[in-house]
Write a protein that binds this DNA or RNA. Sequence first.
DNA 1: CTGGTGCATTGACCCAGATCAAGAAAAGCG
DNA 2: CGCTTTTCTTGATCTGGGTCAATGCACCAG
Lengths: 246, 246
Amino acid sequence: MNGIVFDHKECGSCPIRHRAVCARCDADELEELDSIKYYRSYEAGQPIVWSGDRMDFVASVVTGVASLSQAMEDGRTQMVGLLLPSDFLGRPGRDAAPYDVVAVSNLTLCCFRRKPFEQMMIRTPHIGQRLLEMTLDELDAAREWMLILGRKTAREKIASLMAIIARRDASLALSSAEDGMSFELPLTREAMADYLGLTLETVSRQISALKRDGIITLEGKRHVIIPDFDRLQIETGDDMDGGLMI
Amino acid sequence: MNGIVFDHKECGSCPIRHRAVCARCDADELEELDSIKYYRSYEAGQPIVWSGDRMDFVASVVTGVASLSQAMEDGRTQMVGLLLPSDFLGRPGRDAAPYDVVAVSNLTLCCFRRKPFEQMMIRTPHIGQRLLEMTLDELDAAREWMLILGRKTAREKIASLMAIIARRDASLALSSAEDGMSFELPLTREAMADYLGLTLETVSRQISALKRDGIITLEGKRHVIIPDFDRLQIETGDDMDGGLMI
DNA sequence: CTGGTGCATTGACCCAGATCAAGAAAAGCG
DNA sequence: CGCTTTTCTTGATCTGGGTCAATGCACCAG
């Protein structure tokens, strides 16, 4: 547990509100949510649930990064989701986890006991609606990822990952768009490889190549500086304008 | 329009009921749904909506197959969803289509005007709940697909596709599990390639290889016979027991 | 300071699947 | 019925990324 406790303002209290969209929970609803919530902390690398396990909570990521992944019995693994702060974990109405969930970095979750959460969802339609919207967002992200996995080159894959993290980071920090955005890579080379359907050697080589070509700069092994986001965007192979900005 | 008209029993009327799970719509609700529904037919190859288009309906596939796909401007395309009979198309609450939707074979949709459908959803929570469930199923399918795209070999990809279609087909026909299941391939080699992140030549070669090894038998180019489903299942590389059976 | 442990980088080589190219087999059609 | 068009198969060759292996670089414990 690590002694970390957040007050309502910090954690958002309503899990839906973490995405800063739903301001519709009234005082009673927030109080009810508070009564079924608790915090959990995990260290980098620690498993949260295994595929098939019964999951008796849903949660919102407060700080840190978690991954969802699928493994084949011969060891090949594919990451199928990356949960950053404010993302939602768990599926009301289903009690077995379909994937392995692992804390990629140190992680704090704001958890809600599943049964009472589900009951509340039934009583409170806007929570269900918001959840449907979030699930549709996840579906869009998964499908964007399918394009990356199926059709992009290794270089484009790395550039796409950098762009996605940079964009997410900027939107959380509310401090985007000034020239020279930078962020801390929350993933090891191996985790990136699992995400991108590559090997860790290829990830390393392509990062070196992007560095050599001046698309990115590294400070240490994890701190990335993007001198010109548009140039990175070109490297992703994506349509410049249209398309989803997850 | 082609003059094809279905009565309620054939089409299911309640779009939710197409998946044969929701039997909760009462007479009034069914009548209301009937009042906002209409049918559309498309020929193989015909586009239904383009990415970015405004979509003023949601729909249920009655017969035929449709695909969702994303394209990069240099022509590389990745199919991100395959809609078989009883699958749902469209997203309440969003008015722009995020992908190109194309009729892969001749296709009939049972459409519902979006606005009234959404209003009905708000008034009728169980429809929203069912929709959330279906969206979660789609998300699971998308993520299973990510594993296929990111980590499987060409042979495993083809075997996985065959297994998925065979399974879906069997569950629709309610006539599964007798030895020697068979089905009509609803996709061209090119469409399979777009689905699997391969080239059509590789698809063709791997189908030939599976045929040579007796895993499948072909009658013509499209009719597939699976003499022993378990052997096919082994070729997919998937865990035999666990895992999702979409 | 020294060896150990865990990430990351780099090199040398190889192979699955892409690419390029030629036919074969259906399917439509005047 | 040929004749075109589309779809599929197969072969020859090339290459991006995988595999195997060595080395570098922090960071920690003793």
